Simulated assay, not measured.
Amino acid sequence: MIYADLHVHTNHSDGVCEITDVLENAASNGIKTIAITDHDTINHYDEIFREGKRLGLNIIKGVEMSCYDFDVFKKVHIVALGLGHNTPNIDKLCSHTLSCRDQYHHELIQELHQQGYDINYADAKKFSKYNIVFKMNIFQALKEKYPQEMTKERYKQLFASKTSKETDLKMGYIPITEGIASIIADGGVPILAHPCVYNNYDEIEKYVGFGLQGLEISHSRMKPIDFGLTQMYADKFNLLKSGGSDFHDPALLKFGDFGLTERQFNEFINKSKIAV
């Protein structure tokens, strides 16, 4: 039974649910400890802690940082866990990333408009919690105006095809060395998220040299081979074993299938020294 889910998103980045809804959903599915790891933002944690306390959930403060390995031109997502109240180094890097991402999404909305979609920045902005928009907000605006067309497959056609070295750089991805260093400087634990998604396995040893401390061994996009590979790499480099669902949308994924059992979580906490 899954006890802890340490990789979760809300509508403060590219998830679709409010903080309260996410936490209530997790609690109702037996989750006891959770880390909200929205992309490149942590300024909503007062609400997360408040709602977590109301629901009796243990909260671990976290964020998923959008990093990049310029040696091999790969995305690398690093989850920071166990953060304290002040995170000046992470805040500085994430602020830059969000600013770049917003500028890129302005351009993306213009492209969609030129393709014939009646959409503008304001349409997407109303779905965002911040003064920027995320890709999911653009899709929500499209879905509001074109509900029949905007399926999961259409989302992939419109947005997944945009991934490239050029667009990654426009999105303000953080050099992996700086991302890991900022997490350590702010007292957090850097965890390599879903290495199967961006094929980061070959670079794990290098990232350990940069200060990487953990690896996700359970994730919703892992195939059977990945469960074995992540365990092998974690053991080989004496890495913390973390895990989470990467929850974004209850229509696509439910809590309780991915994460850490109570035994695994206790091992993670004892080794990482993260306060719960």
Rank of each mutant, 00 (worst) to 15 (best):
I132C: 00
G214Q: 09
K53E: 03
P88K: 12
L158T: 13
D14W: 11
H9C: 01
D226N: 10
K236G: 00
H248Y: 10
T20Y: 10
L169T: 08
A26Q: 01
L98M: 09
I204F: 02
P190Q: 04
G82C: 07
A27V: 06
L81W: 07
H12E: 06
C196W: 08
Y201N: 03
Q115T: 08
Q110H: 06
Y198M: 05
G244I: 04
L98W: 12
T41M: 10
P250E: 01
R54D: 00
N29S: 12
F210H: 15
T41F: 15
Q110Y: 09
T151L: 09
M222L: 14
D257W: 09
L98E: 00
G256F: 13
I180N: 03
V76P: 01
C17G: 06
M136Y: 07
T177Q: 14
G62T: 03
Y198N: 10
Y68R: 15
I225K: 11
H12V: 13
K156M: 13
K129W: 13
T33E: 12
I174S: 02
H248A: 02
S13N: 09
Y146L: 03
K32R: 13
E262R: 15
D14F: 12
L260K: 01
I269Q: 06
Y207N: 06
M232K: 12
E107V: 00
L158H: 04
L81K: 06
Y121K: 01
E203D: 09
K75I: 14
S242N: 07
K74A: 02
T41C: 14
P195Y: 00
K241R: 10
G211P: 11
N43D: 13
R101E: 10
F210G: 08
N29Y: 02
Y104F: 15
D202C: 05
N11Y: 01
C196Q: 09
H248T: 02
D249N: 13
V16S: 11
L240F: 04
Y104P: 00
I217W: 07
K206Q: 07
L260P: 03
Q213N: 04
K170M: 15
V197N: 03
D168F: 15
Q157K: 14
C67G: 09
V276A: 05
I42K: 09
A234H: 00
K254Y: 05
Q148R: 13
Y207K: 02
G209Y: 11
G188P: 04
Q110V: 11
D38V: 09
H194G: 05
C94S: 07
H44T: 13
L55E: 00
E216P: 01
K271I: 06
N43Y: 12
